[in-house]
Computed example of a mutant assay.
Amino acid sequence: MPEQDPAHPSAHLGPTEHIRTYPFDPAESLSGVGMRVGPMGAGGPWEGVAAPSRRAHRIDFHVLLFFRAGPVRHMIDFTEYEAGAGDILWIRPGQVHGFSATDEYVGTSLTMQPGFLPRAIVEATGMYRYDRPPLLHPDEAQQAAIQASLEQLQREYLDTSTLPLSLHTSVLRHTLTAFMLRVAHVSAQAAADALEPQADTTFTRFRAAVEKQFTTNHSVSAYADELGYSRRTLVRAVRAATGLTPKAFIDRRVVLEAKRLLAHTDLPVGRIGAAVGVPDSANFSKYFQQHAGVTPAGFRAEQV
């Protein structure tokens, strides 16, 4: 298990209280490479491998599920998505998700470790674009191209004998890059269809900073100073990318984390407030109700 970032809320919780995080284990990949591709099993998404719990949990790696049958209902951060044949579900690191207890997962799963692909490819494919919809509906031509590319990737993944490990890994990275560019094209189209504009570099840097610091830093001015932008520049960039003010963007991230902890842990409300940077219990309850429209206790009761 990799070390947790001390700024991450789950780093401050007891071993039985926080939302369980499943790391990517290269030892479970063929040849120990930083990716895995194969059929979904009846008992979980990875046949022949210990599958993550069907209870809600975090992952610290990318998961892409390619469905050959459906419908399948899958929860990601309090939204239930229904995937059908030909659809793709893209779950990004840090997201809380849960497998359906009744639906059968039929298709192919792809998992990859952060850092397996070069940074330029990560940026080009929007691998950390949390603003993009996780459920993708490629058209017939896109499905055929993606399926052919996925089959090629799986062949390269399984071929561990014709090349030395270093070359095998390089071939996998190149093949995975080509494949992810196809998926990213569908993802970008879905975002455009939802009228979600492309984020510029200013917003990308702001979003990354918020993801690292939202449990301790809720100040727009502090983020602007740290990133070297004027407050006005930051406001313009965030509003263009999301339609939100920077403060609303921060608040949305804080409330999402609070919802995760309320729904998936037994922590007292006061400790959850402290974990997301609002240590006073009364202030946290007021803050949560203002942004979620319900008290923390009321939200938790709704999840039962």
Rank of each mutant, 00 (worst) to 15 (best):
P23Q: 08
P71K: 01
A120F: 04
I76G: 07
I272G: 13
T215Q: 05
I19Y: 04
V238K: 04
A11W: 07
A145G: 13
A184C: 11
L64Y: 09
D5Y: 06
R253L: 09
E104Q: 09
L195K: 04
L65N: 03
A83R: 09
D5S: 15
V255Q: 05
E140T: 12
Q290K: 14
P133V: 02
R207M: 01
R132E: 07
F67I: 01
S10Q: 03
A275K: 01
S109L: 11
D280M: 06
E17I: 04
R232T: 15
L176I: 04
G38A: 15
P9E: 01
H62G: 05
R231I: 07
G14N: 11
L163A: 14
P45F: 14
V210Q: 11
E226I: 04
R271S: 10
L195W: 03
S149F: 07
I88K: 01
A263V: 14
A124W: 06
L64W: 07
G48K: 01
S149I: 05
Q147S: 14
H174E: 15
P279E: 13
L64G: 03
E156R: 13
G107E: 04
R260T: 03
P2H: 03
I88Y: 06
Q303I: 02
T175W: 01
R36T: 08
V294W: 00
A101I: 11
A192V: 03
E80N: 08
R54W: 08
Q189N: 07
L261D: 02
S281E: 12
L176R: 02
E82A: 15
V269K: 00
E156Q: 12
H74F: 15
G270V: 07
V171A: 08
I19T: 10
L64V: 14
G98K: 12
V96W: 06
P279C: 13
A248V: 11
H264F: 15
Q152W: 02
A237E: 10
K212M: 03
F206Y: 13
Q189H: 12
Q95G: 04
A69K: 05
R236W: 02
Q143D: 09
S166L: 04
G277D: 06
I146L: 13
T265G: 05
T111W: 00
T111D: 10
L30H: 10
V220I: 01
F66D: 00
T160N: 08
R253S: 12
I272H: 11
L158W: 09
A263E: 07
A7H: 07
D200H: 08
G98Q: 15
A184T: 14
A258I: 00
Y130C: 02
F67T: 03
V106K: 10
V269N: 00
P45K: 00
A301N: 12
T233R: 14
H62C: 08
A222M: 08
T265H: 12
P39T: 06
L176H: 08
A85F: 13
I250F: 09
R182F: 03
H8C: 05
G115R: 03
R207I: 00
L110P: 10
V294N: 01
R231V: 14
V37M: 12
Y223W: 02
Y22H: 13
L256Y: 00
A190I: 10
P164C: 05
T202K: 11
V304M: 10
A51C: 14
T108P: 01
V37R: 09
S187D: 13
A184V: 11
E17L: 13
H168F: 06
P164Y: 02
A145N: 09
E151H: 12
P6D: 04
A83Q: 06
A145H: 04
E123Q: 11
D280L: 09
